[in-house]
Design a protein around this nucleic acid. Sequence first.
RNA 1: GGGUGAUUAGCUCAGGGGUAGAGCGUUUCCUCGACACGGAAAAGGCCACAGGUCCAAAUCCUGUAUCACCCACCA
Length: 925
Amino acid sequence: MSNSFDKPYNPKDVEEKIYEFWEKSGYFNPDNSPQNSELKSQSFSIVVPPPNITGSLHMGHALNATIQDILIRKKRMEGYKTLWLPGTDHAGIATQNVVEKDLKKQGISRHDLGKEKFLEKIWEWKEKYGHIILNQFKKLGASMDWSRTRFTMDPDYQEAVKKVFLHYHEKGWMYKAERIVNWCSRCATSLSDLELEYKEVESSLYYIKYPIKSDPKLRIHPNDPNEPEYITVATTRPETMLGDSAVAVNPKDEKYKSLVGKTLILPIMEREIPIVSDFLIDASFGTGAVKVTPAHDFTDAEIGERNKLEIHKIIGQNGRMTSEAGAICDGLKISECREKVIEELQKLNLIEKIEPYKHNVAVCYRCDTVIEPLPSLQWFLKMGELAKMAIDEVKSGRVKFHPQKWEGVYLNWLENVKDWCVSRQIWWGHKVPLLKCASCDEFLIEPKIKSHWFIIRHGETDWNKEQRWMGHEEIPLNETGRKQAKEAAGQLKGKNIDLIISSDLARCKETAEIIAEELKAELIFDTALRERHGGIAQGTTKDERITKLGEHLVNALGTYEGKPEGGESWQDLEKRVLESFNRHKSDHKHKNVIIVSHGGSIRMLKKNINNLSFEDAKQNVPKNTEITELLISEEKCKKCDSDILTPENDVLDTWFSSALWPFATLGWPDSKDFKDFYPTQVLSTARDIINLWVARMIFSGVEFTGKQPFSDVIIHATILTKDGKRMSKSLGTGIDPMTLIEKYGADATRFGLIWQAMGGQDIHWAEEHVMAGKKFCNKIWNATRFVLQQIKDIKIQNTEYQIQDTNLSEADKQILEKFKNTKESVSNQIDAFEFGQALHDLYEFFWKDFCDVYLEASKQQLTTDNQKQTTQQILFYVLASSIKLLHPFMPFITEEIWQNLPAHHSFSEGGTVENKKALIVENWQ
RNA sequence: GGGUGAUUAGCUCAGGGGUAGAGCGUUUCCUCGACACGGAAAAGGCCACAGGUCCAAAUCCUGUAUCACCCACCA
């Protein structure tokens, strides 16, 4: 250590050097630090809330890290086996978005790269930038055990996630279901409720008239001219009317009572829909009658379920209208569709009025895109039992929140929680470890996959557009068709295709050739993959067929056995393509294969692969170049003996893996660290993830280890701007802690943060307190300079002074008394997580009592012979002891000073002069 | 719509039935052997508003207003 005590104190000369000193000492690692013999078996551990690898340190992180460091440093000095475990979170959607944006600068999308390559890019990105935030923790002085750094995508962590998922699956708590979920069309994934944000928008409330079916038999008072001819509904989303399956009113609403059960004609769609009653309807809103769109609204879905209403999916996952929305809206963006619908309704004179209306819309917390509720197939975790466990942990007091008021937030959420949608349709994340059998509902656990097969329909032809039966006619692709083929090839890039097997008819042949060219794969043809032969029906549209053959015969063609003259039946087709598929499958089982075929043939293949009824299979016409992926498995389904599995591309919600953080990082289920350090003691975090993270850690901990993962949860203050607004990067109102450290030093920054963190109250950030911290550093530094000058030539003795000692002056007694009190109160305050108060008291003591009063008094006493020695000893004792108390708050300057003090003793160990220790492991008492 | 909290010196905040406190800022004086990133002093507040309880209210109670954050998301 340097012994240059220059003024003023300059943190830049000290901080880097001291941090290196600590790292070299190995004391951050509990295996190396000296433990107090009395406490040998007791450990104290905290796992850091893992920051996202995309993140950089913000004020909240800095405050939180300082809080944890204070606790950790004090416990370490007290002799506990102390571990503070660092790490980072893979942060699924957030990271994927960041890397996507990064690639976009080079004009590349993730689809250009393909999944495997894109994931490689993310790993590269993580290696390059993922540790930035950890280094920033170091700058702040965080005494984390870097040798135990974890990442939520580490191999053993992935194992833990898998184990947890399968455990839930076995318990029957994990299920896959089609439900309405929050869908972000930009991220193309589902989101949990907690991942939404709400924005107020100025929009309109549309009052739309739905005509009541004018069947005289349905009229209650046939002769009453006042009986209404329509019912008016109010909506902010007129476009969703295309998917309406009812109008609902409150059962107690007298106004509408007589209309329940009647039938309406849904405008534009010309569909008959019922009027139903449901208690969820608020009679006082709008007209009291509400349109019900079960596919695209959470409340409506509930009403739909209760009333057994039809579901019309009119909005697709790409954020555009589907074909179910009707010909005039198919393919339109939602906003375009809204205009179109209003235009149509106005033409029909069915808009009663339009009122301006303010309301909230849900947006994606990552990309701000408006969320569409829509039905999709997702994995859910049943929350019933888990929520009960989590509630019990807190109600029993095994887990305590500080401040306690946050228990309310926690309990309120858990008591109303719905099942957790844990799947996400993105690429970066933990995989679902199950694959579903293609032909039944059995799941296989991580089966070995021999090969990937893709079935693809040919591109568009002109006859497709005219809906002419092509059969075996040689129709070439049109321009759209060729483009589609190219795009499909792009999607299949990176799938390591070995072989393409195609029908030899022109439209397939061309498609296959384009794909083969792009993928450089071998191409063979098989006449058995041809389309159903249409005989005399070939080349006709449906209308032409009816004219030519008569309706009765045409209907017969749609049956399983029916065949046109000179053509094939569906049954014939099925037999032929299935035989072909099975032959190729056994010939090429270890090759990745693309089969290019036709709409009819593919339907018959799928009938067998997916074990569908003939009718279901026939209904499900693949679009041009639509790709179906199949996995050929080593092992067969136990239930139905099939070896074809459906791909599972979903990954898990980031929070599913972070929920395991306190034990998965410690080598659960069985390791020395897990035994030594689990459960941890304290978790310190921000309030906005109480439910997102803390609640889920608590039930995961209990379910998998039988113990609460931590006993105290500190919810630290939120740091706001001076005006009390949320700090935001995009608005430029955020403050970078690194700038503060650069400007004032890490100790001053920590001082400023903790100084303002009183009682968990939100902090309106004021930089002047960091300035005060810097001045305080200087004060400590200079007080040390003074004391060192005064004790140059003396030998330091044990200084356990009795305050009653008659040799002591009033000033001596007072400072010793005050120090004793301060030491006690600071210890207690840290243990009670009252860090701000502890720091205020320390500041007050050191500056006022020690410097302003005692130090000044000592100047006089030092000139008096019979007081000199005692004064010297007291000066040293109080200074050195204060340095210890200050160390958790301001570690750098205190360690630097400690290293410059003369050989001294550990005050609690009987006053023997020991070899100098690092302050970080000095005895607290 | 529901909840939680805040409202005290110019600014950021402590306090909590009985003379109103800190940091920063402001003013005056002080370069005296720790420190001018300092010292000594000083100015500055009907403690949001209105009622109530009490001998006594900034503090407890009830309302009101404003601000903030969280939860819900009802067309």
